[in-house]
Design a protein around this nucleic acid. Structure first.
Lengths: 345, 345
DNA sequence: CGCCGGACGGAAAACATTTTCCTGGCTTTC
DNA sequence: GAAAGCCAGGAAAATGTTTTCCGTCCGGCG
């Protein structure tokens, strides 16, 4: 079997070899609605096996006006937040026999729209948008318009972490998680907080900041706005932001970084500045990145079920029937207290 | 512009709107060899813009017998080793205006062959195989055969980290790196070593083990084979392997884990067993995973240029002219001594 | 015994592009 | 001034499937 090696075998050749028509061969080899008699069916299968037939996916996509591609758009695949989500999406897609197309934006919102258009050109079956929204209104409108075009063409779209788009969305409890965290830290005895808030235009970062501040206000703590430092959403961003915070001086007893990789940078910066965590300053993060669970001191954080979120988004886009209204599936956030936080001295 | 919304605009419609033939429209909008007069060119461009024309990628792939897809096959995208490589590959591919298809094998060698066949069905332009080879001869032969088919069809293949396949390969200095590491540890004063060797059938794991043992032998140290523990190539594998090692008892002063994620698990297991690193036992890893650089104690390891390796593999597959002989591009490995190793007590 | 319906097979149209080949007009060159 | 290219443009073939539509055969039923 599979002896054939000369170039590519077409369905035509299989049909000829089996002595049947193109239509019959097609019906046997793709499992259409129509039945084919046992004898011919066997002949076709045998010929296909012998010739090593492999359907031309482009031709199929053209004829069906739909490909077996599923898009996945992330900011940066090297970021463990996105690679966890990606793992969930690919797992689900491969279960369905689909193929994942990975697009990375490098955090340029406009790239998201471009990639989505490319996926539309490929007649992708579905797309999962995992990059977090910005507050850029024009960009969001363009993206929404492109999503409309994509769905109009028969494709399905699901998002992770950003509401407001015309698509089903898995929404992590960013606000509530950050608020819970704040309450736990207050209970622990902290009253003065500094926040590494990430980029000001990133919705996810903002939501976490808002949730945190909201809980502080409820507890009668006025957030000290000079202790909110914006910076890149990365480990190095966390490091640099912390240095700026220390340079400016702060009387905070606890530092909240709006994601784990920034918290990692923060701890490194504090250590380099000769400060101990948590004795001199407590530090908390957000996400509970698996790779960072072995950090010392272990990081107090808010756990998101990242891989599940990816799976769920893929499920929404692939197996769920399209809904009239965009659906929202909440993803719980759970505070995990570990060693990087302690009662203030 | 881009006012059109009714379904999908075809080239035919653009041509009609512009009052030219299909051929002319095609020539304008895809930059073929043939020139088109300035007047018609402008008309076509205007019509395309106005109608919001987007070429049907499937039809293009069919007509050209080649798509704009680039495959990337990894074991597990959530593993930072692979996500770093993936980052390099996607970066390069997107520079070329290509689209990356991500396949994950879950460490099943046979899946690699399946995914490659799928990519052939899609007439992918190139594929980067990043999963490490096993010693499974049958599996490797099947994979090699599928690679031949893929290249026969006009596709290009490049590998990361595994020689022996009929494709260009970026080869990290696993042996030499491990040997260098061993020599540095010997210089430091260590004489008795234990090794977390990963899965016995994984070439990368074996090469590192061999290199390490080779350097020990050269220094007149007979490796203690009861202190070589095999286990999963993951953080939890490292944890479990270390527990087994401790349960069996060892007099080693230094523990070499053949990758960083295993080393991370090892440190956690040692800590849970009440042992201090490096005072009671030194630990070294391999890869220098960026996300793990903030570990405490910071990890002595062997640095591989992971992202560069991905870029380079993509470059070999995309821009380099196909060679008669499979090329091998070496990737240097550099020992990085940090705090997880110290002279033995 | 004839009719009808269902099931199965095949011819051909459709899918959206690229590309080959042809044609008519233009320039260039003796 | 005519022959010999050259070049832009268009008609049509080709790419490999799916799917519609039609024909035929067979069995069952009246």
């Amino acid at each position: 079997m599979e002896s054939q090696s000369s170039g590519n075998v077409t369905l035509e050749q299989v049909a000829q070899h089996a002595g049947v028509s193109l239509a019959t061969a097609s019906r046997v080899l793709n499992g259409s609605t129509r039945q084919v008699g046992e004898k011919l069916r066997k002949k076709v299968m045998a010929s296909a096996g012998e010739l090593g037939y492999l359907p031309n996916a482009s031709a199929q996509a053209l004829a069906r006006n739909s490909s077996s591609l599923v898009g996945l758009i992330v900011h940066d695949i090297a970021d463990p937040y996105f690679s966890s989500i990606a793992s969930g999406v690919t797992g689900r897609a491969e279960e369905e026999g689909l193929v994942v197309v990975l697009g990375t934006t490098g955090r340029t919102p406009q790239r998201e729209t471009e990639i989505l258009a490319t996926l539309r050109a490929h007649r992708a079956k579905a797309v999962v948008l995992a990059g977090t929204r910005t507050v850029d209104e024009v960009g969001n409108r363009n993206l929404a318009a492109e999503i409309e075009r994509f769905t109009a063409q028969g494709g399905r779209v699901a998002c992770v972490s950003q509401g407001g788009l015309p698509a089903d969305t898995v929404v992590p409890a960013n606000r509530e998680g950050a608020a819970d965290l704040a309450r736990r830290l207050i209970t622990m005895g902290h009253r003065r907080f500094a926040v590494l808030a990430g980029p000001p235009d990133l919705r996810t970062a903002r939501d976490r900041l808002d949730g945190f501040h909201g809980a502080l206000s409820e507890a009668g703590i006025e957030p000290a706005y000079h202790d909110v430092v914006h910076g890149a959403f990365t480990r190095d961003g966390g490091y640099a932001s912390t240095q700026r915070l220390l340079a400016a001086g702060t009387d905070a007893t606890c530092l909240f970084a709006v994601n784990d990789v920034m918290a990692t940078g923060a701890i490194a910066a504090l250590r380099d500045a000769g400060l101990r965590v948590p004795e001199d300053l407590s530090v908390a993060g957000f996400d509970d990145i698996p790779t960072l669970r072995d950090l010392i001191p272990s990081l107090t954080t808010v756990r998101l079920p990242l891989e599940w979120m990816g799976q769920e988004a893929a499920r929404l886009a692939l197996t769920e029937a399209p809904a009239a209204q965009p659906r929202r599936v909440p993803a719980g956030a759970e505070v995990v207290l570990r060693d990087s936080t302690a009662p203030p001295a």
